[in-house]
């Protein structure tokens, strides 16, 4: 529904655009939430201009609900802006401020006309901008969640390095608490490394694992069983005394080859692959040894 008052509204917004822009940008740069520095002035101006253009287009079609189809281009644009703000590390308040700061200049421009019918349009427009700021918040939070999810994935991968100790011998030093999603990443990494390195023996070192519950023990056993199906043997090392005790109490039987330390496990692995570590030279005699 395009009425005369809409036309008047649009012409005011167009005519007053330079002034609206100026005071909008001033308010963005002032106060507690300066948007300069991280975003260049020219970029901010382009974003503000584009937003005003989209706002005029949407209002021109007679729409008044921020969720309606006419506002889709504006919502998309704001969505892109908040996504990039979220990634750049802006706070939610700073991000919402971008659109909320447009409110005062627009309302002032409408009131400044002295036309009561235009001043009456100020209220719905201000409500519209509120709705749009909520939209920016939603996008902002969603992108943050995306970032968090991705980081979680990265941490899971980073924290489970598979290292090659010797030709055909791998070690997986586990550090931190094992939950089932992390354990499945660990399991897949280890098994893939076994294929890539053609490893016969994999040592799973759990010195850095604070607790082992039934579930973790089960995951460990499954990993070992899967490695065996592929033709590789696993040795578990570094089971701390408390953990050994808990496991016995839980009734978990780790029916696997287990060694006290990673060094012991490595020595066993070398022996199994037909190698031995020998001292090349007798150690230098110490004072007490001298007779």
């Amino acid at each position: 529904m395009v009425t005369d008052s809409s036309d008047a509204l649009l012409s005011v917004l167009a005519k007053e655009e330079p002034r609206i822009l100026r005071s909008w940008l001033e308010s963005l740069n002032a106060g507690d939430s300066p948007q300069t520095g991280r975003i260049r002035d020219a970029e901010l101006r382009t974003q503000a201009q584009a937003m005003l253009q989209h706002l005029r287009d949407a209002l021109g079609s007679g729409a008044s609900d921020a969720k309606s189809e006419a506002f889709a281009p504006l919502r998309d644009m704001l969505g892109d802006i908040s996504r990039s703000r979220a990634l750049q590390g802006f706070t939610p308040a700073e991000t919402a401020h971008f659109i909320l700061a447009a409110k005062d200049p627009i309302v002032e421009a409408l009131n400044g006309t002295g036309d009561p019918s235009l001043a009456a349009r100020a209220w719905p427009i201000s409500r519209l901008l509120d709705q749009l700021s909520l939209h920016t918040m939603e996008v902002f939070l969603a992108s943050r969640e995306e970032v968090i999810g991705r980081q979680g994935q990265e941490i899971a991968e980073l924290s489970t390095p598979v290292v090659q100790l010797w030709d055909g011998i791998l070690a997986l030093p586990l550090i931190g608490t094992l939950d089932s999603s992390r354990t499945s990443v660990v399991m897949e990494n280890l098994l893939q490394a076994i294929v890539d390195e053609e490893a016969e023996i994999a040592i799973i070192d759990i010195t850095g694992v604070p607790t082992v519950d039934t579930l973790v023990a089960q995951h460990l056993l499954k990993t070992i069983a899967a490695a065996r199906l592929m033709g590789a043997d696993c040795i578990v090392s570094g089971i701390r005394p408390q953990i050994a005790q808990t496991m016995v109490h839980l009734g978990v039987e780790l029916n696997v080859v287990s060694k006290a330390t990673l060094a012991d496990a490595f020595a066993l692995a070398l022996r199994r692959t037909g190698r031995a570590v020998v001292r090349a030279k007798a150690p230098a005699p110490t004072g007490e040894d001298r007779t």
Partner: peptide, 26 residues
Amino acid sequence: VGMRPAVAITLVELGLELTGIKTALN
């Protein structure tokens, strides 16, 4: 020989550990 990692994980989950069979990487 040559069982793929994804296949091995799935078999274990399925409950088949084939303990009577000898295996090798390749």
